[in-house]
């Protein structure tokens, strides 16, 4: 048997805030099966359950980076409630599950403060909408700006590495190019209309 580490809720949240692989694995182990069961009983499938769970963790991650965030209930309760809301939102837009189910659900969990979860979820959806738009703008940027910005921000490469990769004479040149790309990205982002798919 491997060594068993038991995390507290606080440790799990802190680990998630750091994107700690270990902690994330642990969260999956602890809470994912519960969601899969629930989803299947609601006409979802396993893949849906994984999608919803992932999104739920992203919401929690956003909250965990918020200094004002203080969990007033058990982590599992929060996560599960958020996942439920996500699933309802999803199924509402696909009209897979009738609103009847939602109401029943509401009665079931009377004691939970749904408005609060919805607020958290809405903040998340707004953020996602922004990020989607950003991603679209990044795609529209095309080569080499798209790659350059990704190399800097996502792959976390230094300007020197980027200069070599994109054959600029030096890091300073690459940096100038980066600013030009950011400028173009800004223009694209603020000129395209927001496509809200909520």
């Amino acid at each position: 048997m491997s060594r068993q580490v038991i995390y507290t809720d606080q440790e799990l949240i802190a680990g998630l805030a750091q994107s700690d692989s270990h902690v994330i694995g642990e969260i999956y182990k602890l809470y994912q099966p519960m969601l899969t069961k629930w989803m299947i009983s609601r006409g979802g499938n396993e893949t849906d359950a994984y999608d919803v769970f992932q999104e739920g963790l992203v919401v929690l991650y956003e909250k965990s980076n918020d200094e004002a965030f203080c969990l007033t209930c058990k982590l599992s309760t929060y996560l599960f409630a958020i996942c439920k809301r996500i699933w309802f939102k999803k199924s509402q837009s696909q009209s897979v599950i009738s609103s009847l189910d939602m109401e029943q659900e509401g009665e079931e969990d009377d004691d939970l403060d749904f408005a609060a979860y919805d607020a958290d979820l809405n903040v998340h959806l707004e953020k996602e909408a922004h990020l989607n738009k950003l991603e679209q703008s990044l795609e529209q940027l095309g080569s080499p700006c798209n790659e350059l910005l990704k190399a800097f921000y996502i792959e976390d490469k230094s300007m020197l590495e980027i200069a070599q990769q994109f054959s600029y004479t030096n890091a300073e040149n690459a940096k100038t190019q980066k600013y030009k790309c950011l400028n173009r990205l800004k223009k694209l982002f603020f000129s395209t209309k927001m496509a809200l798919n909520v």
Partner: peptide, 16 residues
């Protein structure tokens, strides 16, 4: 934020 999320999501995907 996009970079952090991308990073997080790839970790989540791995864990999944």
């Amino acid at each position: 934020e996009h970079a952090r999320k991308t990073h997080l999501k790839s970790k989540l995907a791995q864990a999944a």
